[in-house]
Nucleic acid binder design. Structure first.
Length: 601
DNA sequence: GCAAGGTC
Protein backbone atom coordinates (compact mmCIF):
# COMPACT_ATOMS: atom_id res chain seq x y z
CA UNK A 1 0.00 0.00 0.00
CA UNK A 2 1.70 3.11 -1.24
CA UNK A 3 0.67 6.58 -0.08
CA UNK A 4 1.89 10.01 -1.11
CA UNK A 5 3.16 10.91 2.32
CA UNK A 6 4.09 9.23 5.54
CA UNK A 7 1.13 10.47 7.56
CA UNK A 8 -1.32 8.82 5.16
CA UNK A 9 0.57 5.52 5.21
CA UNK A 10 0.35 5.52 8.98
CA UNK A 11 -3.36 6.29 8.88
CA UNK A 12 -3.94 3.41 6.47
CA UNK A 13 -2.18 1.03 8.85
CA UNK A 14 -4.15 2.36 11.78
CA UNK A 15 -7.56 2.22 10.10
CA UNK A 16 -7.13 -1.07 8.25
CA UNK A 17 -5.00 -2.93 10.76
CA UNK A 18 -5.87 -1.44 14.12
CA UNK A 19 -2.41 -2.19 15.40
CA UNK A 20 0.76 -1.99 13.40
CA UNK A 21 4.53 -2.28 13.63
CA UNK A 22 6.82 0.46 12.36
CA UNK A 23 10.03 -0.50 10.61
CA UNK A 24 12.41 1.59 8.53
CA UNK A 25 13.43 0.22 5.17
CA UNK A 26 16.35 2.14 3.72
CA UNK A 27 15.29 4.86 6.12
CA UNK A 28 11.71 4.91 4.82
CA UNK A 29 9.03 4.47 7.47
CA UNK A 30 7.01 1.34 6.69
CA UNK A 31 3.96 0.23 8.65
CA UNK A 32 3.28 -3.51 8.90
CA UNK A 33 -0.13 -4.85 9.89
CA UNK A 34 -2.65 -7.57 9.13
CA UNK A 35 -5.54 -6.88 6.80
CA UNK A 36 -8.17 -9.45 5.77
CA UNK A 37 -6.03 -12.20 7.26
CA UNK A 38 -2.92 -11.33 5.28
CA UNK A 39 0.27 -9.44 5.91
CA UNK A 40 0.23 -5.87 4.64
CA UNK A 41 2.79 -3.07 4.53
CA UNK A 42 2.07 0.62 3.98
CA UNK A 43 4.71 3.14 3.10
CA UNK A 44 4.52 6.82 2.32
CA UNK A 45 6.50 8.49 -0.45
CA UNK A 46 7.51 12.12 -0.47
CA UNK A 47 5.62 13.26 -3.52
CA UNK A 48 6.94 12.52 -7.00
CA UNK A 49 9.47 9.77 -7.61
CA UNK A 50 10.39 10.98 -11.06
CA UNK A 51 11.07 14.14 -12.92
CA UNK A 52 11.91 15.34 -16.40
CA UNK A 53 15.37 16.39 -17.48
CA UNK A 54 17.24 16.93 -20.71
CA UNK A 55 20.06 14.66 -21.80
CA UNK A 56 23.45 15.68 -20.40
CA UNK A 57 24.78 17.06 -23.68
CA UNK A 58 21.72 19.30 -23.96
CA UNK A 59 22.51 20.83 -20.63
CA UNK A 60 25.50 22.84 -21.73
CA UNK A 61 23.86 26.21 -22.19
CA UNK A 62 26.52 27.89 -24.27
CA UNK A 63 26.91 24.96 -26.58
CA UNK A 64 23.32 24.35 -27.57
CA UNK A 65 21.16 27.09 -29.11
CA UNK A 66 18.16 27.27 -26.74
CA UNK A 67 15.62 26.74 -29.52
CA UNK A 68 17.05 23.27 -30.13
CA UNK A 69 15.29 22.22 -26.95
CA UNK A 70 12.00 22.51 -28.82
CA UNK A 71 13.13 19.57 -30.98
CA UNK A 72 13.94 16.87 -28.41
CA UNK A 73 11.63 16.26 -25.49
CA UNK A 74 13.12 15.88 -22.00
CA UNK A 75 13.11 12.40 -20.48
CA UNK A 76 11.36 10.95 -17.45
CA UNK A 77 14.11 10.12 -14.96
CA UNK A 78 14.30 9.01 -11.33
CA UNK A 79 15.01 11.84 -8.91
CA UNK A 80 18.26 11.59 -7.04
CA UNK A 81 16.70 12.41 -3.69
CA UNK A 82 14.10 9.63 -4.03
CA UNK A 83 16.66 6.82 -4.08
CA UNK A 84 15.71 5.49 -0.62
CA UNK A 85 12.05 5.39 -1.64
CA UNK A 86 12.89 3.56 -4.86
CA UNK A 87 14.90 0.99 -2.94
CA UNK A 88 12.24 0.52 -0.28
CA UNK A 89 9.54 0.16 -2.93
CA UNK A 90 11.51 -2.44 -4.85
CA UNK A 91 12.35 -4.52 -1.80
CA UNK A 92 8.69 -4.59 -0.70
CA UNK A 93 7.23 -5.02 -4.17
CA UNK A 94 9.46 -7.95 -4.97
CA UNK A 95 7.28 -10.34 -2.97
CA UNK A 96 3.95 -8.52 -3.13
CA UNK A 97 0.83 -10.29 -4.38
CA UNK A 98 -1.26 -7.17 -4.51
CA UNK A 99 -0.32 -3.52 -4.73
CA UNK A 100 -2.66 -0.73 -3.66
CA UNK A 101 -1.80 2.68 -5.05
CA UNK A 102 -3.22 4.88 -2.30
CA UNK A 103 -1.93 8.23 -3.52
CA UNK A 104 -3.88 11.46 -3.15
CA UNK A 105 -7.12 11.60 -5.12
CA UNK A 106 -6.01 14.33 -7.50
CA UNK A 107 -4.19 14.48 -10.84
CA UNK A 108 -0.75 14.70 -9.27
CA UNK A 109 -1.61 11.63 -7.19
CA UNK A 110 -2.54 9.81 -10.38
CA UNK A 111 0.84 10.67 -11.90
CA UNK A 112 2.70 9.58 -8.77
CA UNK A 113 0.67 6.36 -8.79
CA UNK A 114 1.83 5.75 -12.35
CA UNK A 115 5.47 6.41 -11.39
CA UNK A 116 5.06 3.95 -8.52
CA UNK A 117 3.60 1.32 -10.84
CA UNK A 118 6.53 1.74 -13.22
CA UNK A 119 9.03 1.14 -10.43
CA UNK A 120 7.15 -1.88 -9.10
CA UNK A 121 6.82 -3.49 -12.51
CA UNK A 122 10.59 -3.53 -12.83
CA UNK A 123 10.78 -6.15 -10.07
CA UNK A 124 7.35 -7.73 -10.06
CA UNK A 125 5.35 -8.46 -13.20
CA UNK A 126 2.59 -10.55 -11.59
CA UNK A 127 1.30 -8.48 -8.69
CA UNK A 128 -2.25 -7.26 -9.10
CA UNK A 129 -2.39 -3.50 -9.03
CA UNK A 130 -5.24 -1.43 -7.73
CA UNK A 131 -5.84 2.27 -7.34
CA UNK A 132 -7.72 3.39 -4.23
CA UNK A 133 -9.11 6.88 -3.85
CA UNK A 134 -10.34 8.49 -0.63
CA UNK A 135 -11.42 12.08 -0.10
CA UNK A 136 -10.48 12.28 3.55
CA UNK A 137 -7.99 10.46 5.70
CA UNK A 138 -10.58 9.07 8.09
CA UNK A 139 -11.53 5.56 9.20
CA UNK A 140 -14.70 5.56 7.14
CA UNK A 141 -13.28 6.93 3.91
CA UNK A 142 -10.18 4.76 3.94
CA UNK A 143 -12.00 1.53 4.70
CA UNK A 144 -14.57 2.26 2.02
CA UNK A 145 -11.85 3.02 -0.53
CA UNK A 146 -10.04 -0.27 0.09
CA UNK A 147 -13.27 -2.20 -0.22
CA UNK A 148 -13.86 -0.70 -3.67
CA UNK A 149 -10.49 -0.55 -5.40
CA UNK A 150 -10.44 0.87 -8.94
CA UNK A 151 -7.88 1.28 -11.70
CA UNK A 152 -5.31 3.90 -12.58
CA UNK A 153 -6.56 6.76 -14.70
CA UNK A 154 -3.83 6.97 -17.34
CA UNK A 155 -5.23 10.11 -18.89
CA UNK A 156 -4.83 12.09 -15.71
CA UNK A 157 -1.27 10.83 -15.35
CA UNK A 158 -0.56 11.73 -18.99
CA UNK A 159 -1.84 15.22 -18.41
CA UNK A 160 0.61 15.73 -15.56
CA UNK A 161 3.56 14.36 -17.51
CA UNK A 162 2.67 16.58 -20.44
CA UNK A 163 2.58 19.62 -18.17
CA UNK A 164 5.96 18.70 -16.66
CA UNK A 165 7.48 18.34 -20.10
CA UNK A 166 6.05 21.55 -21.53
CA UNK A 167 6.92 23.62 -18.46
CA UNK A 168 10.51 22.42 -18.46
CA UNK A 169 10.94 22.94 -22.18
CA UNK A 170 9.50 26.44 -22.17
CA UNK A 171 11.28 27.35 -18.96
CA UNK A 172 14.61 26.13 -20.24
CA UNK A 173 14.34 27.67 -23.71
CA UNK A 174 13.40 31.15 -22.54
CA UNK A 175 15.55 31.14 -19.41
CA UNK A 176 18.61 30.23 -21.44
CA UNK A 177 17.73 32.71 -24.16
CA UNK A 178 17.32 35.60 -21.70
CA UNK A 179 20.42 34.65 -19.77
CA UNK A 180 22.61 34.27 -22.84
CA UNK A 181 21.32 37.57 -24.23
CA UNK A 182 22.87 39.51 -21.34
CA UNK A 183 25.54 37.01 -20.32
CA UNK A 184 28.30 39.64 -20.01
CA UNK A 185 26.32 41.81 -17.66
CA UNK A 186 25.36 39.10 -15.17
CA UNK A 187 27.13 38.26 -11.94
CA UNK A 188 28.62 34.82 -11.52
CA UNK A 189 25.83 32.31 -11.00
CA UNK A 190 23.11 34.84 -11.85
CA UNK A 191 20.57 34.03 -14.53
CA UNK A 192 17.33 35.50 -15.81
CA UNK A 193 14.49 33.04 -15.64
CA UNK A 194 11.18 32.66 -17.42
CA UNK A 195 8.37 30.38 -16.31
CA UNK A 196 4.73 30.02 -17.28
CA UNK A 197 3.69 30.81 -13.71
CA UNK A 198 6.44 33.06 -12.34
CA UNK A 199 6.49 35.39 -15.34
CA UNK A 200 2.77 36.25 -15.42
CA UNK A 201 3.02 36.88 -11.66
CA UNK A 202 5.79 39.39 -12.34
CA UNK A 203 3.66 40.83 -15.13
CA UNK A 204 0.77 41.57 -12.78
CA UNK A 205 3.02 43.29 -10.25
CA UNK A 206 4.84 45.35 -12.87
CA UNK A 207 1.61 46.33 -14.63
CA UNK A 208 0.37 47.78 -11.37
CA UNK A 209 3.64 49.61 -10.73
CA UNK A 210 3.57 51.16 -14.23
CA UNK A 211 -0.03 52.25 -13.68
CA UNK A 212 1.13 53.99 -10.52
CA UNK A 213 4.09 55.63 -12.21
CA UNK A 214 2.02 56.85 -15.13
CA UNK A 215 -0.78 58.08 -12.95
CA UNK A 216 -1.60 61.78 -13.28
CA UNK A 217 -3.42 62.99 -10.17
CA UNK A 218 -6.38 65.29 -10.76
CA UNK A 219 -7.84 67.77 -8.33
CA UNK A 220 -11.50 67.62 -7.48
CA UNK A 221 -13.77 69.24 -4.91
CA UNK A 222 -16.33 67.88 -2.50
CA UNK A 223 -18.84 69.52 -0.21
CA UNK A 224 -18.96 68.74 3.49
CA UNK A 225 -21.39 70.14 5.97
CA UNK A 226 -22.21 70.05 9.63
CA UNK A 227 -25.96 69.63 9.78
CA UNK A 228 -28.25 70.11 12.74
CA UNK A 229 -31.24 67.80 12.90
CA UNK A 230 -33.22 68.15 16.08
CA UNK A 231 -30.67 68.16 18.91
CA UNK A 232 -28.04 66.35 16.86
CA UNK A 233 -25.16 67.70 14.84
CA UNK A 234 -24.21 65.35 12.00
CA UNK A 235 -21.30 65.40 9.53
CA UNK A 236 -22.80 65.04 6.07
CA UNK A 237 -21.41 65.19 2.57
CA UNK A 238 -22.49 65.18 -1.04
CA UNK A 239 -21.66 62.17 -3.13
CA UNK A 240 -20.62 64.39 -6.04
CA UNK A 241 -17.16 65.34 -7.27
CA UNK A 242 -16.85 68.85 -8.70
CA UNK A 243 -14.20 69.64 -11.30
CA UNK A 244 -13.65 73.19 -10.08
CA UNK A 245 -13.83 74.96 -6.75
CA UNK A 246 -16.10 77.54 -8.34
CA UNK A 247 -18.76 75.00 -9.24
CA UNK A 248 -18.59 73.45 -5.79
CA UNK A 249 -18.84 76.81 -4.05
CA UNK A 250 -21.83 77.85 -6.11
CA UNK A 251 -23.68 74.75 -4.97
CA UNK A 252 -22.39 75.00 -1.38
CA UNK A 253 -23.68 78.57 -1.08
CA UNK A 254 -27.22 77.34 -1.68
CA UNK A 255 -27.12 74.84 1.20
CA UNK A 256 -29.06 76.35 4.11
CA UNK A 257 -32.14 74.54 5.22
CA UNK A 258 -33.43 71.19 4.09
CA UNK A 259 -35.49 68.21 5.14
CA UNK A 260 -34.67 64.58 5.98
CA UNK A 261 -35.67 62.53 2.98
CA UNK A 262 -34.53 59.11 4.16
CA UNK A 263 -33.55 57.69 7.54
CA UNK A 264 -32.66 54.03 7.33
CA UNK A 265 -31.67 51.78 10.25
CA UNK A 266 -31.46 48.27 8.89
CA UNK A 267 -30.15 45.16 10.65
CA UNK A 268 -27.55 43.26 8.66
CA UNK A 269 -25.79 39.94 9.29
CA UNK A 270 -22.06 39.67 8.71
CA UNK A 271 -21.34 36.02 8.02
CA UNK A 272 -18.31 34.23 9.49
CA UNK A 273 -15.63 33.02 7.03
CA UNK A 274 -15.72 29.78 5.07
CA UNK A 275 -13.58 26.83 6.23
CA UNK A 276 -9.91 27.57 5.63
CA UNK A 277 -7.95 26.61 2.52
CA UNK A 278 -4.27 27.22 1.83
CA UNK A 279 -4.59 30.40 -0.16
CA UNK A 280 -6.91 32.03 2.37
CA UNK A 281 -4.57 31.05 5.20
CA UNK A 282 -1.72 32.72 3.31
CA UNK A 283 -3.71 35.82 2.41
CA UNK A 284 -5.02 36.35 5.92
CA UNK A 285 -1.64 35.70 7.56
CA UNK A 286 -0.05 38.21 5.20
CA UNK A 287 -2.68 40.85 5.91
CA UNK A 288 -3.35 40.36 9.60
CA UNK A 289 -0.35 38.62 11.10
CA UNK A 290 2.35 40.21 8.96
CA UNK A 291 3.71 36.80 7.99
CA UNK A 292 4.43 36.28 4.30
CA UNK A 293 2.96 33.41 2.32
CA UNK A 294 6.12 31.35 2.07
CA UNK A 295 6.78 31.55 5.79
CA UNK A 296 3.16 30.76 6.52
CA UNK A 297 3.19 27.57 4.48
CA UNK A 298 6.55 26.54 6.00
CA UNK A 299 5.23 27.03 9.52
CA UNK A 300 1.93 25.32 8.70
CA UNK A 301 3.87 22.33 7.40
CA UNK A 302 5.74 22.13 10.72
CA UNK A 303 2.51 22.36 12.69
CA UNK A 304 1.02 19.61 10.56
CA UNK A 305 3.99 17.32 11.05
CA UNK A 306 3.83 17.86 14.79
CA UNK A 307 0.15 16.89 14.67
CA UNK A 308 -1.35 20.27 15.61
CA UNK A 309 -3.22 21.07 12.40
CA UNK A 310 -4.56 19.11 9.46
CA UNK A 311 -2.81 18.93 6.10
CA UNK A 312 -2.05 22.51 5.07
CA UNK A 313 -2.18 22.17 1.26
CA UNK A 314 -5.81 22.05 0.36
CA UNK A 315 -8.33 23.75 -1.87
CA UNK A 316 -11.32 22.43 0.05
CA UNK A 317 -13.67 24.81 1.87
CA UNK A 318 -16.33 22.32 2.95
CA UNK A 319 -15.96 20.22 6.09
CA UNK A 320 -16.34 16.57 5.06
CA UNK A 321 -19.32 14.79 6.62
CA UNK A 322 -16.93 12.28 8.16
CA UNK A 323 -15.17 14.98 10.20
CA UNK A 324 -16.63 15.12 13.71
CA UNK A 325 -16.67 18.86 14.45
CA UNK A 326 -18.01 18.24 17.94
CA UNK A 327 -14.97 16.12 18.70
CA UNK A 328 -12.65 18.86 17.48
CA UNK A 329 -14.42 21.35 19.76
CA UNK A 330 -14.06 18.99 22.70
CA UNK A 331 -10.35 18.72 21.96
CA UNK A 332 -10.06 22.53 21.85
CA UNK A 333 -11.47 22.76 25.36
CA UNK A 334 -7.86 22.44 26.51
CA UNK A 335 -6.69 25.61 24.70
CA UNK A 336 -6.86 29.28 25.66
CA UNK A 337 -10.13 29.34 23.77
CA UNK A 338 -11.57 26.48 25.80
CA UNK A 339 -14.43 28.55 27.21
CA UNK A 340 -15.45 29.66 23.76
CA UNK A 341 -15.34 26.10 22.41
CA UNK A 342 -17.45 24.85 25.31
CA UNK A 343 -19.95 27.61 24.77
CA UNK A 344 -20.34 26.51 21.14
CA UNK A 345 -20.84 22.93 22.29
CA UNK A 346 -23.47 24.02 24.78
CA UNK A 347 -25.36 26.39 22.52
CA UNK A 348 -25.07 24.36 19.34
CA UNK A 349 -23.43 25.41 16.09
CA UNK A 350 -23.72 25.19 12.35
CA UNK A 351 -20.56 25.29 10.22
CA UNK A 352 -20.18 27.66 7.29
CA UNK A 353 -19.65 26.07 3.93
CA UNK A 354 -17.61 27.22 0.95
CA UNK A 355 -17.98 25.97 -2.59
CA UNK A 356 -14.89 23.95 -3.41
CA UNK A 357 -13.77 20.42 -2.73
CA UNK A 358 -10.44 19.27 -4.16
CA UNK A 359 -11.40 15.68 -3.52
CA UNK A 360 -8.16 14.98 -1.67
CA UNK A 361 -7.90 17.00 1.54
CA UNK A 362 -10.24 18.61 4.07
CA UNK A 363 -10.09 22.30 5.01
CA UNK A 364 -7.34 23.29 7.44
CA UNK A 365 -8.46 22.80 11.05
CA UNK A 366 -6.77 22.17 14.40
CA UNK A 367 -6.20 18.49 15.18
CA UNK A 368 -4.68 18.85 18.63
CA UNK A 369 -5.12 21.29 21.48
CA UNK A 370 -2.09 23.27 22.53
CA UNK A 371 -1.34 26.18 24.80
CA UNK A 372 0.94 29.03 23.89
CA UNK A 373 3.69 27.81 26.17
CA UNK A 374 3.49 24.29 24.73
CA UNK A 375 3.87 25.60 21.18
CA UNK A 376 6.79 27.79 22.22
CA UNK A 377 8.42 24.81 23.92
CA UNK A 378 7.90 22.53 20.91
CA UNK A 379 9.08 24.97 18.26
CA UNK A 380 11.84 26.84 20.08
CA UNK A 381 13.11 29.69 17.93
CA UNK A 382 10.21 29.30 15.51
CA UNK A 383 7.74 29.52 18.40
CA UNK A 384 6.55 33.02 17.67
CA UNK A 385 5.41 32.23 14.14
CA UNK A 386 4.18 28.75 15.03
CA UNK A 387 1.95 30.16 17.73
CA UNK A 388 0.64 32.96 15.51
CA UNK A 389 -0.37 30.51 12.78
CA UNK A 390 -1.72 27.85 15.14
CA UNK A 391 -3.78 30.37 17.06
CA UNK A 392 -5.09 31.75 13.79
CA UNK A 393 -6.15 28.28 12.60
CA UNK A 394 -7.93 27.65 15.91
CA UNK A 395 -9.73 30.99 15.83
CA UNK A 396 -10.68 30.57 12.19
CA UNK A 397 -12.06 27.12 12.91
CA UNK A 398 -14.10 28.43 15.85
CA UNK A 399 -15.30 31.32 13.70
CA UNK A 400 -16.66 28.96 11.04
CA UNK A 401 -18.89 27.39 13.71
CA UNK A 402 -19.95 30.68 15.26
CA UNK A 403 -23.04 32.82 14.75
CA UNK A 404 -22.80 35.79 12.41
CA UNK A 405 -22.23 39.29 13.74
CA UNK A 406 -25.27 41.54 13.68
CA UNK A 407 -24.94 45.21 12.83
CA UNK A 408 -27.33 48.01 12.07
CA UNK A 409 -26.57 49.79 8.80
CA UNK A 410 -27.55 53.40 9.05
CA UNK A 411 -28.09 56.07 6.43
CA UNK A 412 -29.50 59.57 6.57
CA UNK A 413 -30.23 61.60 3.44
CA UNK A 414 -31.26 65.22 3.59
CA UNK A 415 -32.66 67.19 0.68
CA UNK A 416 -31.33 70.76 0.34
CA UNK A 417 -33.07 71.57 -2.92
CA UNK A 418 -30.16 71.73 -5.30
CA UNK A 419 -28.33 68.90 -3.66
CA UNK A 420 -28.71 65.93 -1.34
CA UNK A 421 -26.32 65.44 1.56
CA UNK A 422 -25.91 62.10 3.25
CA UNK A 423 -24.29 60.38 6.18
CA UNK A 424 -23.74 56.67 6.74
CA UNK A 425 -23.09 54.93 10.00
CA UNK A 426 -23.05 51.56 11.66
CA UNK A 427 -23.82 50.18 15.08
CA UNK A 428 -22.90 46.75 16.38
CA UNK A 429 -25.88 44.86 17.81
CA UNK A 430 -24.23 41.48 18.37
CA UNK A 431 -20.54 40.72 18.04
CA UNK A 432 -21.15 37.10 17.02
CA UNK A 433 -18.00 35.49 15.60
CA UNK A 434 -16.00 38.73 15.97
CA UNK A 435 -15.45 37.79 19.59
CA UNK A 436 -13.06 35.08 18.46
CA UNK A 437 -12.09 36.60 15.11
CA UNK A 438 -11.39 40.22 15.85
CA UNK A 439 -9.55 40.83 12.57
CA UNK A 440 -12.90 41.18 10.86
CA UNK A 441 -14.46 43.32 13.53
CA UNK A 442 -15.98 46.42 11.96
CA UNK A 443 -15.73 49.73 13.69
CA UNK A 444 -18.83 51.50 14.95
CA UNK A 445 -19.76 54.99 13.86
CA UNK A 446 -23.35 55.19 14.95
CA UNK A 447 -25.67 57.93 13.74
CA UNK A 448 -28.39 59.40 15.92
CA UNK A 449 -32.03 58.51 15.37
CA UNK A 450 -33.79 61.01 13.10
CA UNK A 451 -36.99 60.78 11.15
CA UNK A 452 -38.11 61.47 7.65
CA UNK A 453 -39.56 65.00 7.51
CA UNK A 454 -37.25 66.38 10.25
CA UNK A 455 -35.83 69.79 9.50
CA UNK A 456 -32.11 69.83 8.65
CA UNK A 457 -30.15 73.05 9.13
CA UNK A 458 -26.67 73.45 7.72
CA UNK A 459 -24.52 74.96 10.48
CA UNK A 460 -21.26 74.97 8.56
CA UNK A 461 -20.64 74.24 4.88
CA UNK A 462 -17.19 73.83 3.36
CA UNK A 463 -15.62 72.92 0.06
CA UNK A 464 -12.73 70.50 0.40
CA UNK A 465 -10.03 70.04 -2.22
CA UNK A 466 -9.03 66.45 -2.94
CA UNK A 467 -6.82 64.63 -5.41
CA UNK A 468 -7.46 61.40 -7.28
CA UNK A 469 -5.04 58.75 -6.10
CA UNK A 470 -3.06 56.14 -8.03
CA UNK A 471 -4.01 52.50 -7.50
CA UNK A 472 -2.31 51.18 -4.35
CA UNK A 473 0.80 49.02 -4.42
CA UNK A 474 -0.02 45.38 -5.01
CA UNK A 475 -0.31 43.53 -1.71
CA UNK A 476 0.69 39.92 -1.43
CA UNK A 477 -2.86 39.11 -0.43
CA UNK A 478 -4.21 40.75 -3.57
CA UNK A 479 -1.63 39.03 -5.75
CA UNK A 480 -2.59 35.63 -4.35
CA UNK A 481 -6.23 36.37 -5.11
CA UNK A 482 -5.32 37.35 -8.68
CA UNK A 483 -3.28 34.19 -9.15
CA UNK A 484 -6.19 32.12 -7.97
CA UNK A 485 -8.52 33.98 -10.31
CA UNK A 486 -6.26 33.36 -13.31
CA UNK A 487 -5.42 29.79 -12.34
CA UNK A 488 -1.71 30.48 -11.94
CA UNK A 489 -0.11 27.78 -9.79
CA UNK A 490 -1.82 25.54 -7.25
CA UNK A 491 -2.62 25.91 -3.59
CA UNK A 492 0.75 24.43 -2.73
CA UNK A 493 2.84 26.43 -5.20
CA UNK A 494 1.43 29.94 -5.43
CA UNK A 495 3.78 31.27 -2.80
CA UNK A 496 6.69 29.62 -4.62
CA UNK A 497 5.96 31.64 -7.74
CA UNK A 498 6.02 34.87 -5.78
CA UNK A 499 9.31 33.97 -4.12
CA UNK A 500 10.93 32.80 -7.32
CA UNK A 501 10.54 36.38 -8.50
CA UNK A 502 12.09 37.61 -5.26
CA UNK A 503 15.01 35.18 -5.60
CA UNK A 504 15.67 36.29 -9.18
CA UNK A 505 15.85 39.91 -8.09
CA UNK A 506 12.71 40.85 -10.03
CA UNK A 507 10.69 41.84 -7.01
CA UNK A 508 10.85 42.64 -3.30
CA UNK A 509 8.40 42.10 -0.50
CA UNK A 510 8.02 44.93 1.98
CA UNK A 511 5.43 44.85 4.74
CA UNK A 512 3.01 42.74 2.72
CA UNK A 513 3.53 44.75 -0.48
CA UNK A 514 5.06 43.49 -3.75
CA UNK A 515 7.52 46.00 -5.16
CA UNK A 516 9.13 45.21 -8.52
CA UNK A 517 12.81 46.07 -8.97
CA UNK A 518 14.15 47.99 -11.96
CA UNK A 519 15.34 44.67 -13.39
CA UNK A 520 11.87 43.16 -13.00
CA UNK A 521 10.30 46.21 -14.60
CA UNK A 522 12.74 46.15 -17.52
CA UNK A 523 12.21 42.45 -18.18
CA UNK A 524 8.43 42.63 -17.91
CA UNK A 525 8.23 45.76 -20.05
CA UNK A 526 10.30 44.14 -22.79
CA UNK A 527 8.18 40.99 -22.74
CA UNK A 528 4.94 43.02 -22.84
CA UNK A 529 6.37 44.75 -25.91
CA UNK A 530 7.94 41.92 -27.87
CA UNK A 531 6.15 38.74 -26.75
CA UNK A 532 3.10 39.64 -24.64
CA UNK A 533 1.80 36.07 -24.77
CA UNK A 534 4.64 35.07 -22.47
CA UNK A 535 3.68 37.41 -19.67
CA UNK A 536 -0.05 38.02 -19.83
CA UNK A 537 -1.97 36.53 -16.90
CA UNK A 538 -4.16 34.47 -19.23
CA UNK A 539 -1.34 32.24 -20.58
CA UNK A 540 -1.46 29.72 -17.80
CA UNK A 541 -5.22 29.27 -17.88
CA UNK A 542 -5.11 28.66 -21.64
CA UNK A 543 -2.39 26.09 -21.27
CA UNK A 544 -4.21 24.41 -18.39
CA UNK A 545 -7.32 24.19 -20.53
CA UNK A 546 -5.38 22.61 -23.38
CA UNK A 547 -3.86 20.09 -20.95
CA UNK A 548 -7.25 19.32 -19.49
CA UNK A 549 -8.40 18.25 -22.96
CA UNK A 550 -6.15 15.21 -22.55
CA UNK A 551 -8.38 14.11 -19.68
CA UNK A 552 -11.70 15.44 -20.95
CA UNK A 553 -11.63 14.88 -24.69
CA UNK A 554 -9.07 12.12 -24.97
CA UNK A 555 -6.70 14.37 -26.94
CA UNK A 556 -3.35 12.67 -27.32
CA UNK A 557 -0.25 14.41 -25.96
CA UNK A 558 1.43 13.33 -29.18
CA UNK A 559 -0.74 15.87 -30.98
CA UNK A 560 -0.97 18.46 -28.26
CA UNK A 561 2.70 18.86 -27.36
CA UNK A 562 3.86 19.83 -30.89
CA UNK A 563 0.97 22.26 -31.11
CA UNK A 564 1.90 24.08 -27.91
CA UNK A 565 5.58 24.06 -28.80
CA UNK A 566 4.84 25.50 -32.25
CA UNK A 567 2.91 28.32 -30.65
CA UNK A 568 5.73 29.19 -28.29
CA UNK A 569 8.31 28.91 -31.05
CA UNK A 570 6.51 31.81 -32.69
CA UNK A 571 6.90 33.88 -29.54
CA UNK A 572 10.52 32.80 -29.38
CA UNK A 573 11.15 34.03 -32.92
CA UNK A 574 9.43 37.33 -32.15
CA UNK A 575 11.68 37.81 -29.13
CA UNK A 576 14.78 36.80 -31.07
CA UNK A 577 14.07 39.40 -33.74
CA UNK A 578 14.18 42.08 -31.06
CA UNK A 579 17.17 40.64 -29.26
CA UNK A 580 19.26 43.82 -29.56
CA UNK A 581 16.56 46.03 -28.06
CA UNK A 582 16.01 43.47 -25.35
CA UNK A 583 19.72 43.35 -24.60
CA UNK A 584 19.99 47.13 -24.40
CA UNK A 585 16.96 47.45 -22.11
CA UNK A 586 18.19 44.78 -19.71
CA UNK A 587 21.83 45.84 -19.76
CA UNK A 588 20.93 49.43 -18.97
CA UNK A 589 19.51 48.18 -15.69
CA UNK A 590 22.03 45.42 -15.00
CA UNK A 591 25.06 47.64 -15.58
CA UNK A 592 23.51 50.54 -13.74
CA UNK A 593 23.06 48.29 -10.76
CA UNK A 594 26.66 47.14 -10.76
CA UNK A 595 27.91 50.72 -10.86
CA UNK A 596 25.65 51.54 -7.98
CA UNK A 597 27.08 48.63 -6.04
CA UNK A 598 30.65 49.68 -6.82
CA UNK A 599 29.78 53.18 -5.72
CA UNK A 600 28.65 51.86 -2.36
CA UNK A 601 31.77 49.82 -1.70
C1' DG B 1 22.32 27.21 -13.82
C1' DC B 2 16.24 26.36 -16.77
C1' DA B 3 9.87 25.07 -14.78
C1' DA B 4 6.05 23.58 -11.96
C1' DG B 5 4.29 20.07 -9.31
C1' DG B 6 4.41 16.83 -5.39
C1' DT B 7 6.71 16.19 -0.45
C1' DC B 8 9.76 16.96 4.13
Amino acid sequence: MVAEKRSVAQAIAKYLGGTYRLQKIYGVATYYFRYNGREAAALGLSGHLMDFDFAARQNIWTWLPPEELFQTPPLLVARGETLPYLKALRSLAYKAEEVYLALDADVEGEAIAYETALVIRLVNRRAKMYRVRFNAVTYKDIRAAFQKPTRLDLKQAEKVFTRMQIDLTLGAVFTRFLTLTVKNSLQKGQFLSYGPCQTPVLGMVVARELERRNFKPEKYYVIKALVEIGDNKIEMSADIRFKTRKEAEAVAAAIRQGVVKAAVYKPHHVQPPDPLDTVELERRASRWLGINSKKTLDVAEELYRAGYISYPRTETTIYPPTLDLREVLQELAATEHGDYAEELLRRGFRPTRGDSDDGAHPPIYPTKAATKSEIYRTFGKAGYHAWAIYDFVVRHFLATLSPPALVEKQKIVADFGKIHLEAVGQKTLDEGYWRIYSWERQSEKPLPRVEVGDVARAVKVEVVERETEPPPQMTESELLALMRKHGIGTDATMQDHIYTNVKRGYMKMQRGKCIPTELGIALATALFKYAPELIEPTVRARMEKALQSIVKDGISPKNLVPEIKAEFEKYYQALKERREELRRALEAVLNGKQEERRGHS
